[in-house]
Write a protein that binds this DNA or RNA. Structure first.
Lengths: 150, 150
DNA sequence: ACCTTTAAGTTGTACTATACAACCAGACCT
DNA sequence: AGGTCTGGTTGTATAGTACAACTTAAAGGT
């Protein structure tokens, strides 16, 4: 086996291990917001509101899945629906104050967890690791679709 | 925000994105074996058989979950149970020939997918990325438990 | 030796995330 | 106006998972 193969093997193994653990780890870190809910809220915050369809396209989720996720978040009072001015079919989803607070709280938890976990990494390594992850994820775009990235 | 914070932010975001996509991506890559089944089979192969309890401990899964996963793999003819010589309660799980073949096939698919995806990375980058992932995952050990790693 | 406790595994039950298909309602095109 | 497309909800099904109750066997204490 070449060095290259050994590296590939390690990358595959470690990413697999990470993937297996991630959801449960996130659930432990913030039981009040699943990884997906967290992501959806974060997206709403970042964009300042968008439609359910946009979320589905962006995250490659079925619209029914998004519909139910949003329904859950609305039930929790984290999201509100506003009529879309230009299209009566559509709704624009917005974070509520409560949703924003919760998101901020969870984001802070996550940030702290990462900060602590990576506390003994030096800055240059962090920077390179971040770069590699970006590069890896960027190569994920399903060929043939116009980068419905997620 | 410091450079360090920016890197942490990126790492967090990209790992989250990866985690969100991983299961579905694995399912697309090999529909016949979920990420968890794949991992369990790979573990059995690597160890040459072990008990269900060991799998549960290793992967931080409930024993009922493992029991059902194994039942499924047995139904598919990928795993067989052998009596444990030293403990009448226990069973030692082994890969069958069919299970080994399927695993090899899936592993080859995965290897190819990673190879292709990382085709334009140079060897040094692959090596560093692998090292970072190892280091990151190694820091995951839940404190207070004796490294029931997964 | 007996009784209690612990360990391995299964099964009942419940919940979450997800997909696909059927559907409804509004929009758009000709 | 009629047909088609699009945004969204709902019905249904599946996978993965956990927790609790249970069964059986092993281990330990007295």
């Amino acid at each position: 086996m070449t060095d290259r193969d050994a590296s590939l093997e390690t990358i595959q193994r470690e990413l697999t291990a990470f993937a297996r653990r991630a959801r449960a780890a996130a659930a432990r870190l913030h039981p009040e917001l699943s990884l997906v809910s967290y992501t959806l809220l974060a997206h709403l915050e970042e964009r300042g509101g968008c439609r359910a369809t946009d979320l589905a396209a962006h995250y490659l989720l079925d619209k029914s899945t998004v519909s139910r996720q949003i329904a859950g978040l609305e039930r929790l009072g984290f999201v509100e629906r506003r009529p879309a001015p230009e299209d009566q079919r559509a709704q624009v989803l917005h974070l509520t104050a409560r949703g924003g607070d919760t998101l901020a709280q969870v984001a802070a938890n996550r940030r702290d967890a990462f900060r602590e976990r990576l506390a003994d990494w030096d800055g240059a390594d962090l920077d390179r690791f971040a770069g590699y992850l970006l590069r890896y994820n960027a190569s994920n775009r399903t060929p043939g679709r116009r980068t419905p990235q997620a």
